[in-house]
């Protein structure tokens, strides 16, 4: 791999996104809209601020999902359009492609997460005990995880339609099992054991850990959760790299 080629890939991906303002608008504003909607539908219900309960989970969940979809569809397009093959027949390393994509998408995610976190802690008054930058850091790790999973899925999907269908298959079970709706301790033993292996469990735990912190420090175990998320993402990304074969049938 070479930095020149990695940056060329990143610049090209950004250029493609800029050609598509509608996608950018959806990427940046849908998470904010969902958070706002959450606040609004619960605004007449008595009790604490709903954003405190579900905000962190949503902030963890949105970048993950969005990057999952963007990566799986764009990588699938590279495969079917023959551009992946062209890149690999040229002096492009597989790491150049992956890192280039990761760079481009993380920069989009940075803006996306900053907007939704800003809305949450600002106008919607989400209580955060830990530092706000830690929220951003966890959101970036989550988007990295989504990118890694999306790449892996693009190898198994034949069409864009299939790729998008992987989203509910991979995301909704994790959402139910991660302890957001029912505390994990009260779930059946087997469900709890499964949730121990799912990355979204740690992604949402890390976000809640930042929220539960105090005096500008995150709660105990938050950094471990974050490391687990990044660790799983790196393993999945490494597996995804194997699917970028130079020689195919």
């Amino acid at each position: 791999m070479s930095p020149r080629i990695t940056l060329a890939v990143a610049r090209r991906v950004i250029r493609q996104l800029r050609r598509d303002p509608r996608t950018i608008a959806l990427l940046l504003f849908v998470p904010c809209l969902v958070l706002l909607l959450l606040w609004w539908v619960f605004s007449e219900v008595a009790g604490g601020n709903i954003i405190d309960t579900f905000g962190p989970a949503l902030i963890a969940f949105m970048p993950f999902t969005v990057m999952f979809i963007v990566t799986s569809v764009t990588m699938l397009r590279e495969r079917t359009a023959g551009t992946l093959e062209r890149m690999l027949a040229m002096p492009t390393g597989r790491a150049d492609i992956l890192l280039g994509y990761a760079l481009a998408l993380l920069s989009v995610c940075l803006v996306q997460a900053a907007l939704v976190i800003g809305l949450g802690v600002g106008p919607l008054g989400m209580e955060v005990g830990g530092p706000v930058w830690a929220l951003l850091l966890v959101a970036l790790a989550d988007s990295f995880l989504g990118t890694a999973l999306g790449l892996a899925v693009s190898a198994f999907a034949r069409t864009e339609f299939q790729a998008v269908q992987f989203m509910p298959a991979l995301v909704f079970p994790q959402l139910l099992l991660c302890g957001l709706f029912v505390p994990r301790e009260t779930m059946p033993g087997a469900a709890q054991a499964i949730s121990d292996f799912l990355p979204l469990t740690y992604a949402i735990e890390a976000m809640q850990g930042v929220q539960a912190g105090a005096d500008g420090h995150v709660a105990d175990g938050t950094w471990t959760d974050l490391l687990i998320v990044v660790g799983i993402a790196v393993v999945v990304l490494a597996l995804g790299t194997l699917t970028l074969r130079r020689r195919t049938d």
Binding site: I5, A8, R11, R12, R15, Q16, A81, G82, T83, R86
Partner: peptide, 24 residues
């Protein structure tokens, strides 16, 4: 290749600039 293997959402020049960067 028969499928073209270029990015249809970029201009001709942008496509070429990308592949030129790979070649240096």
């Amino acid at each position: 290749t028969q499928v073209g293997a270029i990015y249809s959402d970029l201009t001709a020049r942008e496509n070429l600039e990308f592949f030129a960067a790979i070649h240096g």
